[in-house]
Amino acid sequence: MSTLILFLPLAPSGPTADYSYTLTADGHTALRHASAPAALLPEPARPGGEVVAVVPAQALSWQRVQLPNGVPLGTGQQTSRLRSVLEGLLEDLLLDDPAQLHFALQPAARAGEPVWVAVCDRAWLREALQALESAGRRVSRVVPEFAPGPTASGQPELFALGTPEEAHLVLCGHGAEQAVTVLPLSSVALGLIGPAPVDADEAMPPVHAEPAVAALAERTLGRPVVLHTA
């Protein structure tokens, strides 16, 4: 049994679109990692193998809403009524027509409580998944690259990602609701975390950077970074 984890490209998918992927047997150690068109992606070993699609942070908008009591939730209960409720709650928060968007609730969401909703372009997601299925790589799970919630360090964390030409920052664990925010790679991003510690012994929030943008991140942010591979 193995798992094929792949990143959905931001550009429209097609026969020649490349997918960055990692093949793993245990979810921790990479057996292989590279990029390839859908038809040339490795197949996970059977039985029990699965294909997991990762939605890039840049393709997602995270919205916080209060679900009313009585809304059906759980497996098999993602009904048109729930869709209508979410469209009503999110209508004033979104720039695009809700009918053109895909909504996904956080795990273990409960009616009557605040929940996170991941929002992305519906046509883009459908096209990406159909391209993979046409190539025999049917996706069993779709997950976000980053999600709201506590970080490993228990404090806000910054991730510098991308290429020098298209670098960006992802701020995780931000604020009381531990939100996720995507920002340009700039020194302004550090100001969103809060003031620098007064005590020299107090740790600054860590900055993780992919190798391609590590030097750029250090110059831009004026501080050392921790290498972080995709």
Rank of each mutant, 00 (worst) to 15 (best):
E87N: 09
S35V: 00
P195N: 08
V52Y: 03
G191T: 05
A25S: 14
G70T: 09
G88C: 11
T181K: 09
E165Q: 15
I193N: 02
S13K: 04
D18N: 11
E91K: 14
R141M: 05
L227T: 14
R138D: 05
R137H: 14
L105C: 06
G49S: 11
L94Q: 03
A99W: 03
V198D: 12
L183Y: 09
L192P: 02
P184S: 14
T79A: 10
A152D: 12
V225A: 01
R223H: 07
L82V: 08
G149T: 10
G149P: 11
A176P: 00
S2V: 05
V119T: 10
Y19L: 02
E177G: 02
D121L: 04
M1N: 05
Q130A: 15
E91Q: 15
G173A: 11
H228Q: 13
C172L: 13
A200D: 04
T22R: 13
G49L: 12
T229D: 14
P68T: 10
V115M: 04
I5R: 12
G222A: 12
L41T: 03
E202W: 10
V213E: 07
R64M: 06
A167I: 02
T163A: 10
Y19V: 02
P42W: 06
T24R: 02
T151I: 07
P144W: 04
A99C: 00
A123I: 05
T181Q: 11
P42G: 10
Q63E: 13
T29G: 00
T229C: 01
E127R: 09
P15L: 09
E210M: 05
L161S: 00
D26Q: 07
L95R: 12
L89C: 06
P15E: 14
P206D: 07
S153P: 02
G27I: 12
Q78I: 02
L89Y: 03
A214M: 08
P72E: 00
Q100S: 15
A135W: 06
P42H: 08
P197A: 06
G88T: 12
R137Y: 04
V119D: 07
A53R: 01
E166C: 07
A160P: 01
L216M: 10
L41F: 03
F159H: 15
L90G: 03
P224H: 07
V55D: 01
H102C: 05
R32N: 11
S187K: 08
H168E: 03
Q100D: 10
S140R: 14
Q155M: 12
G74H: 13
A39V: 11
R83W: 07
G88W: 11
Q100K: 10
G70I: 08
G76K: 05
P144K: 03
A123T: 08
G175A: 03
T24N: 00
F146Q: 01
P184T: 15
G48V: 03
H28E: 15
G27F: 09
V143M: 11
V198W: 05
A200G: 02
L67W: 05
A34R: 10
F159C: 07
V71R: 10
D26V: 05
E210K: 01
A147W: 03
L105K: 04
A118S: 12
L67C: 04
A152R: 14
G222E: 13
P42T: 07
D18I: 04
A108E: 15
E127G: 02
N69T: 09
G112I: 02
L31D: 08
F103Q: 10
T220Q: 08
A104D: 09
L183Q: 13
